[in-house]
Design a protein around this nucleic acid. Structure first.
Lengths: 220, 220
DNA sequence: TCGTGTGAAGTAGTTCACAGCA
DNA sequence: TGCTGTGAACTACTTCACACGA
């Protein structure tokens, strides 16, 4: 698994997706070129960090004009996206799951939720937000048929581990976990925990005790 | 703003909220004492890190029995929670907003969403998930009346900055921002960005390219 | 003996600062 | 001149390793 691309730091990858979003908007508005300090301002970062992050995608700017917007976007696409896109499964079609389905719909064309799983038998075989919903029993079969390797987990915490096991058995390589539970999965499976309660507690805490703030100057 | 509590690193605070969750579960099950390595296992961390994190709350363990669960929970409560709790406002009662309302309901009794704001005039003065919904025009007034200092922002990205400005004007000190937009707010306001699309892109990326994984052994 | 508390060492991530080029 | 690309310095965070104590 020791690839040619030297490990991209996780934080760098996050920022790259952000830069891309900003660049797309810029491109829409007709911008042709951009300097690292401009992108940095928009992203709330230091120019040096933007430049260093962009080193990872291997697109060279030019001291006179900065970075060529369209070319940079293309490079980032090559770097970030899997050609042909990646299908995603959603597990858990409760309140949160349904909201996520709607939220992700059309947001990243390259990353589409194509199936839903839910234990509720009433939901089986029905369409939810345009996606077919299946019983978890059919997970392995459906996932293989649709070539799904990425899953969004939006089930209650007590069910999370069991579902994660099923996902792994069905060949999933990456899980975006909304459940407040630590998933035990094989080394090769990537888990990203998105703990909303933790995030809210953090805001509550730091909004009282002064700013243990990001250094980012967020302007006036 | 230079307090007596030496700045708690952001990461430490995240983990503390996690430890507390685990401790509460443990306490429920009747556990009396716990060692740092046990807590570390449950949290997917190193024992030394757990001990160092706990230093921040100022609760001393004991080499023979480890930490006394109940006492530690009390200390963490003193450290993490505002006595009497903090009221929270939700802005944006769309799909996501409503799901968040349901999600947070009862999860942290000390951190309750008590009001909702939405531009849709049809929602004004109606109850949504048990919360009164108001027009953003009434924000300053309602926030003051309910002593709300923390807000969850779940509006579309293009509206995010405008809403953030209103929140700041209404006296908010902390914002949990679900909109994929960089908010410009005064230095004293804490913003935590929770970018779900970014998180999904991260999973998609790292599930392909090998593990730029957290060092955490997530076991087999 | 074994676990805590913590100084010290190690690692990862960020920012500086400057050489080199258009 | 002013920006990029990047070694080097710095900062923040994590882990080691050991003195101390029950």
């Amino acid at each position: 698994m020791k690839g040619k691309t030297k490990d991209v730091p996780q934080r760098t990858l996050e920022r790259l997706t952000l830069y891309r979003r900003l660049l797309n908007a810029l491109h829409q508005e007709g911008a042709r070129h951009i300097y690292s300090h401009e992108l940095a301002d928009m992203a709330g970062r230091m120019p040096a960090q933007v430049r260093r992050d962009l080193m990872a995608v291997g697109y060279a700017g030019n001291p006179a004009r900065g970075y060529e917007v369209e070319g940079l976007i293309k490079s980032m696409r090559r770097f970030l996206d899997k050609p042909g896109g990646q299908n995603v499964a959603l597990v858990g079609a409760g309140n949160l799951g349904k909201a996520l389905l709607a939220y992700f719909k059309g947001r990243r064309p390259n990353l589409r939720i194509v199936v839903v799983f839910d234990i509720d038998p009433n939901k089986a075989n029905r369409l939810i937000g345009g996606c077919r919903c299946y019983s978890p029993a059919r997970m392995a079969q459906v996932m293989k048929a649709r070539d799904v390797r990425v899953a969004v987990l939006a089930v209650p915490a007590p069910a999370a581990q069991e579902v994660a096991d099923q996902l792994v058995a069905a060949g999933v390589q990456g899980i975006l976990n909304f459940a407040p539970a630590l998933l035990r999965v094989p080394e090769s499976v990537y888990v990203e925990d998105l703990d909303m309660t933790m995030a809210l507690e953090k805001v509550a805490y730091f909004s009282r005790r002064g700013p243990a703030r990001k250094k980012v100057s967020r302007g006036a």
